[in-house]
Nucleic acid binder design. Structure first.
Lengths: 193, 193
DNA sequence: TCTAGAAGTTACAGACCGGTAACACCCTAG
DNA sequence: CTAGGGTGTTACCGGTCTGTAACTTCTAGA
């Protein structure tokens, strides 16, 4: 019989979830597999039975993160069905909320910075997933009736990416505090064209 | 007698220069002190005679980077004496050139991401230096006669920061390719207000 | 109840890390 | 010529890292 207790999740999922959290907080090179398995209430052997290597675990974590992001987009559509412009504003709001709540940027960008080896297996995945997110934002801008949809989407992307990294270097009182104002101003000016 | 041969630079400077280059390329946690000293043509003992610790070396590298950045600003003033608007455009051009030539972002931002421990000694330095750069850009925008100088400067900051990290995750064909267009467009629209 | 597979445990290999000690060397200022 | 400081060399310390082997324990399903 399945009992739904949180304690009884499969070790693989516990490891994945714990690793995501720890990689996010301390960076990939900042946390070892021993620490992950201990925090997940299991052991190293079990980790290596489910994942080929630490790199493999990292990649699975990034995929899981991308999957969570997808859920966000579905929420936008559910909350503002058909209203693409409202969804774009919801995206800005969500981004700002993440900025204020979290403080430690985008897992994929952080991973790309940390894993500087150009042939690292995770880099391919990061590029794919980031490209997909970009395409999605471009599509949203286009469907919202913005003329230069690509340019607006790319500008918003860079602003958000910049805000996330600026938050970690300059702090919360730095330029990232103005993110919403910038983003909303941009959307307004692009609508006017 | 001093002979000016490049070979005869002091070990301390050789270490500092080599460390800057290697930290930049491979990240701080991605390179050990042994590798640095070997590449600098010296040894670990000499490094620890000149720097208290690896963290201390990191901090000195960041200060050196900030110093190089200062030199840029003096070049702007020298090339366009008094013409603040031209200096702002020169800043954009310089930023774009760095983006295309380099590929591996801002040392301070990268360090802030890598050194996630909130009490890491380098974080204070990073915040100070980044804040100084921000103030400088705000001052330039204000002197150039821009009305909302802070907002323009912060927006440009985030755009550049975002472009540098996006370059590492999505690649050169990603949003960062449009950086100049975005920045110039922003300056134009802020002038018109 | 029995069994097969999943999970836990312990120990270990081999490499690398930051940092230090002891000692030999060289080069320059006096 | 000589003394001393900067430098090079070698060896080492204790710790941490990823990854593996061998063995025991647990648990779910027939």
């Amino acid at each position: 019989m399945e009992d739904g207790t949180a304690e009884r999740i499969r070790p693989r999922d516990r490891i994945l979830e714990t690793a995501r959290d720890m990689f996010h907080k301390h960076g990939i090179k900042g946390v070892g597999v021993d620490a992950i398995t201990e925090a997940a209430g299991t052991n190293k052997m079990t980790l290596y039975r489910h994942f080929e290597s630490k790199d493999d675990l990292v990649i699975e974590c990034l995929r899981a993160t991308a999957c969570s992001a997808n859920a966000m987009w579905q929420k936008f559509e559910a909350e503002h069905p058909g209203d693409k412009l409202a969804q774009l504003h919801a995206w800005v709001r969500m981004a700002a909320d993440c900025l204020m709540m979290d403080g430690r940027g985008c897992d994929m960008a952080n991973a790309a910075i940390e894993l500087s080896e150009t042939d690292h297996p995770a880099r391919r995945v990061i590029k794919e997933l980031k490209q997909a997110q970009r395409d999605r934002l471009v599509g949203l801008c286009r469907d919202a009736g913005i003329g230069q949809a690509e340019l607006l989407a790319d500008t918003l992307s860079l602003l958000l990416e910049g805000a996330r990294v600026s938050l970690q270097s300059v702090g919360a009182e730095g330029p990232s505090a103005q993110f919403v104002r910038m983003a909303e101003g941009l959307i307004t000016s692009f609508k006017a064209r």
